[in-house]
Deep mutational scan, measured.
Amino acid sequence: EHKIILYENPNFTGKKMEIIDDDVPSFHAHGYQEKVSSVRVQSGTWVGYQYPGYRGLQYLLEKGDYKDSSDFGAPHPQVQSVRR
């Protein structure tokens, strides 16, 4: 199983989107239009992308907690697509 939770604010606060065993080419299409400032990967390895359609900067997200976007190497809290 692959499970990831994306949070609007640092330290796992604010609006969140939970994804289980699915690739998401556009967070906006899924109704999530917030920034991504923290991430909790509960299982599996994911790649987050700066822009929709798996474009832009890529961020490797392995199991663990990323309490701020800088923890996974993002210069800005901008992640708009993700895949396993």
Rank of each mutant, 00 (worst) to 15 (best):
M17D: 12
S43G: 11
Y32L: 14
I19S: 10
N9Q: 11
Y7P: 02
E8N: 08
E34A: 13
D21E: 15
T45M: 06
L57T: 15
W46H: 03
A29M: 13
Q58R: 14
A74H: 15
Y54A: 03
H76E: 13
Y51K: 06
V47T: 04
N9F: 07
F27I: 11
Y59N: 04
L57G: 12
P10D: 05
G48I: 04
H2T: 04
S69Q: 10
R40N: 07
A29C: 10
P52C: 05
E62C: 05
E1Q: 05
V24A: 11
G48S: 08
V79E: 15
L60W: 03
Y54F: 06
F12T: 05
L6M: 12
S26A: 12
V39N: 05
Q50W: 01
P77G: 12
D21W: 06
H28C: 14
I20S: 13
Y66W: 10
P25W: 05
I20K: 15
V41K: 02
N9M: 07
H76K: 06
Y54E: 06
Q58N: 01
G48V: 15
Y49M: 15
E62S: 07
H76M: 15
P52A: 08
D68E: 11
K63G: 06
Q78Y: 15
K67F: 14
G31N: 09
E18V: 10
I5W: 13
H30Q: 13
S43L: 08
T45F: 08
L60P: 06
V24P: 00
L6R: 01
T13R: 15
V36K: 01
S38L: 02
I5N: 00
A74I: 15
D65W: 08
L61I: 14
Q33S: 10
L57R: 15
L61Q: 02
V47I: 13
Q33A: 14
K16H: 08
P52N: 05
Y59K: 05
F12S: 07
L57Q: 15
Y49V: 03
L57H: 13
E1S: 10
D21S: 02
S70H: 14
V79L: 09
D22K: 11
E8Q: 15
F12Q: 07
K15Y: 08
Q42V: 15
K63P: 15
E34H: 11
S70E: 12
K15Q: 15
S69Y: 13
G48L: 15
K15L: 08
G64V: 00
I4T: 07
V41F: 00
R55G: 07
D68L: 12
G48D: 11
V79Y: 07
K3S: 11
R55H: 09
S43M: 06
S38R: 03
K67L: 13
E8S: 12
W46T: 02
K67A: 13
G44V: 00
Q78A: 13
T13I: 08
Y32C: 11
N11V: 06
Q50Y: 00
R40V: 07
D71P: 08
S26V: 07
S26N: 10
S26K: 03
Y49F: 05
V36H: 02
I20E: 04
L61R: 00
A74C: 11
V47G: 00
K67Y: 11
V41G: 04
P52I: 02
E1M: 06
A74Q: 12
H2F: 12
K15T: 14
Y7M: 00
Q33P: 13
S43Y: 05
D68S: 13
L57M: 13
L6F: 04
H2G: 02
Y54N: 03
Y7D: 00
G31Y: 03
L57A: 14
V24R: 10
H28S: 13
K3R: 12
E1R: 00
D68F: 12
V41A: 01
Q58L: 03
K35W: 06
G44S: 03
L60N: 15
G64L: 00
D71W: 09
K3H: 13
D68W: 14
I20F: 14
V24M: 12
V39R: 02
H2Q: 08
G53F: 04
A29T: 10
I19F: 00
A29D: 12
S43R: 09
K16M: 15
A74L: 05
M17I: 15
Q33M: 15
T13H: 05
L57S: 12
P52K: 07
F27W: 03
I20Q: 11
Y66V: 03
A29R: 08
R40L: 06
Y66P: 12
D71T: 08
Y7Q: 07
S26E: 14
P25H: 07
V24K: 09
V36I: 15
F27S: 04
Y66A: 06
E18H: 04
Y54K: 08
K67H: 09
E18I: 15
P25I: 14
K35D: 00
Y66D: 00
Y59F: 08
P25V: 09
K16I: 07
Q78G: 10
K15G: 12
R84A: 02
G53H: 05
S69W: 10
A29E: 13
Q42I: 15
